[in-house]
Design a protein around this nucleic acid. Structure first.
Length: 439
RNA sequence: GCGGCUAUAGUUCAGCGGCAGAACGCCUGACUGUGGCUCAGGAUGUCGUGGGUUCGAUCCCCACUAGCCGCCCCA
């Protein structure tokens, strides 16, 4: 029988790498807490129509990347429900916001999530079919200030802080405004019209995009097309006064907060729900998948899935890509984040007769918050030393003599010093840094 | 979904149409309670899977699967 493997595009995360993941998540939770965000956990699958209506029927995500299946019908007369593994988490959060009537609290909701998302794309480095996102949303009724450009700036400033605490440098904040839904629709027509005469001179992809999705033409990377793209109308010229004012307030707040950004009038994001402020933090060294995180404002999302008016802004960080970026950085930088603590002690019983008391000793030390490993009495002492040397900073020898006298033999691998330690003093000795000489 | 490259030991990789290799790691070293550095031995394996060509295939051909790179798109 063929050996079973993780399915394409999915993978196992093993120690010690998981320690790094945990560390990153802990830092994120800590930053979110300071900005007064609370955690939300939504189901990993939802009714398919949530994504179709929320994310947008025409987006790549919905049209070709979702894991969708039909649930069993509850009764024969019923139609089976179509379910989908979430391809992103914003729609689920907004659905929960509506379902639990969080808007009725009158308060701004600040929610973050950490969890797996699913998209059936061709796997690559930094792109998996089950991938992890850390994201946050600020959403609420307009009366709670959910539309304020201050919220946009606060979210961006928080992201800059988070990246700093994660020791990630060299990122670029690409910033743009795609205007209101109406602005966007208007721009689409203007762009389509402007493209008509020039598209035949462009690359094959652009000729196709000019018809199917004009906004994507702006993203084209073919050098020959760049001069033509430069001449195309910019979305900024199609923004109404409110959108312009809103965006100006966002950039002003960023300037005041000292968050550097790069205005990118060609930044187009692939989800239909984005309005006004959109952004992306990119990082070199990620290859073709250079987006570390992306997000933006979604003032009409709630209404598009049948909820009340609830403007919001949010982002999603690609956790897999964050880890890749971190691992590509200087090892010393990595060490400050990923702390691989060795065991304080390896307890070596000298015979099977000592196994039970070795376990009891370990239990006692663990109660005192020490990380401890226990060997086995069938191991020869030489072998115990070899194992201990690999994973602990000290070895504690427990033979017949030690068991009778209660005086344990402790050898420190850092200093090379071997000493006798009464059992009741052991925990205190092990808590001292191994580099310190002990009596 | 399309194109290119790749798949050999636990890991990183070399290799050749005729008995499978290196480095690191692992195991064992005068059976008694002492590791790290050396030294001496030892084991690595369905050569990704399934077909085909051949006297003979890990090697050549085809298909499949998976990974990587690019496109598309995105986190």
């Amino acid at each position: 029988m063929a050996t079973l493997k993780a399915v394409r595009g999915t993978r196992d995360l093993l120690p010690p790498e998981t320690a790094l993941w945990n560390r990153i998540e802990a830092i994120a939770r800590s930053v979110f807490a300071r900005y007064n965000f609370g955690e939300i956990r939504t189901p990993v699958f939802e009714d398919t129509s949530l994504f179709a209506r929320g994310v947008g029927e025409e987006t790549d995500i919905v049209s070709k990347e979702m894991y969708t299946w039909e649930d069993r019908a509850r009764a024969q007369s019923e139609k089976p429900q179509s379910l989908t593994l979430r391809p992103e988490n914003t729609a689920g959060v907004v659905r929960a916001y509506i379902e639990h009537k969080l808007g009725e609290t009158g308060q701004l909701q600040k929610l973050y999530y950490i969890g797996p998302q699913f998209r059936r794309e061709r796997p690559q480095k930094g792109r998996y079919r089950q991938f992890w996102q850390i994201g946050a949303e600020v959403i609420g009724p307009p009366s709670a200030g959910s539309e304020s450009p201050l919220r946009d700036a606060e979210v961006l400033e928080m992201l800059a802080k988070l990246l700093k605490e994660l020791r990630i440098s060299g990122w670029t904040l690409e910033l743009n405004s795609v205007g209101s839904a109406a602005d966007r629709a208007r721009y689409n027509e203007v762009l389509r019209a402007a493209l008509e005469p020039v598209a035949p001179k462009m690359c094959a992809d652009c000729q196709r995009r000019a018809v199917t999705n004009p906004l994507r033409v702006l993203d084209c990377k073919v050098p020959e097309d760049q001069p033509i793209i430069e001449t195309l109308p910019k979305i900024a010229d199609c923004l109404d006064e409110d959108s312009k004012k809103h965006f100006a307030a966002v950039t002003a707040a960023l300037d005041a907060a000292g968050v550097p950004y790069h205005l990118n009038p060609r930044l187009v994001r692939g989800l239909d729900y984005y309005t006004r402020t959109t952004f992306e933090f990119t990082h070199g060294g990620l290859g073709a998948q250079n987006a570390l995180l992306g997000g933006g404002r979604y003032d009409g999302l709630s209404e598009s899935i049948g909820g009340p008016k609830a403007p919001g802004i949010g982002f999603a960080i690609g956790l897999d890509r964050l880890v890749l970026t971190l691992q590509a950085q200087d090892q010393t930088v990595l060490d400050t984040i990923y702390v691989d603590t060795p065991c304080a002690a390896y307890i070596a019983p000298l015979g099977e007769a000592q196994n039970a008391s070795a376990l009891a000793l370990a239990s006692d030390l663990r109660k005192r918050e020490l990380r401890v490993e226990v060997g086995d009495g069938t191991f020869r002492l030489k072998k115990s030393f070899e194992i201990a040397n690999k994973l602990a900073s000290r070895i504690v020898i427990l033979g017949e003599d030690e068991e009778k006298s209660g005086i344990l033999t402790v050898k420190n691998f850092v200093t090379g010093v071997q000493s006798k330690v009464p059992r009741e003093e052991l925990a205190a000795v092990l808590k001292k840094p191994a580099a310190e000489l002990e009596g």
